[in-house]
Amino acid sequence: MNRKLLFTLAIILSAVLLVSSVSAIWPFDGGSDVTVNGINFHLPDGFNHVEKEDQLNGNGNYEAYTYDNENNHEFIKICVVDFDGDETSLYNSLIKKGFSQKTINGKEGYGRIYSGGPRYGYGYVENGKYVILDIPFVYADEGLQHDELLAKIIK
């Protein structure tokens, strides 16, 4: 083979490898960042805000958003409640309800499959707030299991 052709092929191969390695670590994979009651999250592409609940009650501020994906009729619900209680008591209560301990993105919490459908619930305490996530058990659009989807959502 000609030296110019080998050199050109080497350059093209290097460029392809460079692009593929950058895309593997590229932090901007689409979606949108949202904040619920002072806690930040990242939603995958396709989820749009459709419903908001918030109230101030005897237990403090409560804020919840439901994000719907119109393409596949899936939804993600994020609820964040001011929390000044005992985390151990909260977690013991969750264990009695069938939740099991799980750490996602450094957030130690508790999760379980909901019996009413293919959904997964996960809760944890962060910065004096109790965070509850209700997500699809499997998010087919991106081929993600619930743990992988939570890892994308929780910042």
Rank of each mutant, 00 (worst) to 15 (best):
L150Q: 05
S20P: 06
H42V: 13
W26A: 08
T88H: 05
T35A: 13
I76R: 09
F99Y: 15
V81C: 04
Y110H: 10
F99H: 11
F99P: 01
D29Y: 04
V81E: 15
I78E: 08
D45T: 09
I113V: 08
E51T: 14
L90T: 02
G38T: 04
P136T: 03
L133C: 05
L56D: 12
L149E: 05
N105Q: 02
C79N: 13
I25Q: 03
P27H: 07
A64Y: 03
G111H: 11
N59Y: 14
Y110A: 02
D134Y: 14
S115I: 07
K155V: 10
N57D: 15
G116K: 12
D147I: 04
E87M: 07
F75P: 08
K129V: 07
E74Y: 10
I12N: 01
G109F: 02
H146N: 13
W26V: 03
L6R: 09
L43P: 07
I104E: 04
N57Y: 08
Q55P: 02
M1D: 00
P118Y: 05
A151Q: 07
T88M: 07
V80T: 10
H146Q: 12
Y124H: 10
L133H: 06
F47R: 09
F47K: 07
D84P: 00
G38W: 08
I11N: 03
K77P: 02
D29H: 12
D33W: 13
V125L: 04
E70G: 09
V50D: 11
I11Y: 02
V50F: 11
G30Y: 04
Y65Q: 14
M1C: 00
E108C: 01
V16T: 08
G116W: 11
D54K: 12
Y124V: 02
V34W: 01
Y114N: 14
Y110M: 08
S32F: 00
V81K: 12
N69S: 11
S100N: 10
E108G: 01
R119Y: 10
I153A: 00
W26Q: 06
T88W: 02
E148R: 05
Y122V: 04
I11H: 01
D84K: 15
L9H: 00
I104Q: 03
S100V: 10
S89V: 11
F28D: 03
W26D: 12
T103Q: 06
E87K: 11
K96C: 05
S14V: 11
I153K: 03
A140S: 05
I78C: 09
N105I: 00
F41P: 09
V16M: 07
D82R: 12
I39M: 10
Y110F: 14
L6F: 09
H73K: 15
A151L: 00
P136N: 05
Y91E: 01
D33T: 15
H42S: 14
N61E: 13
G106P: 09
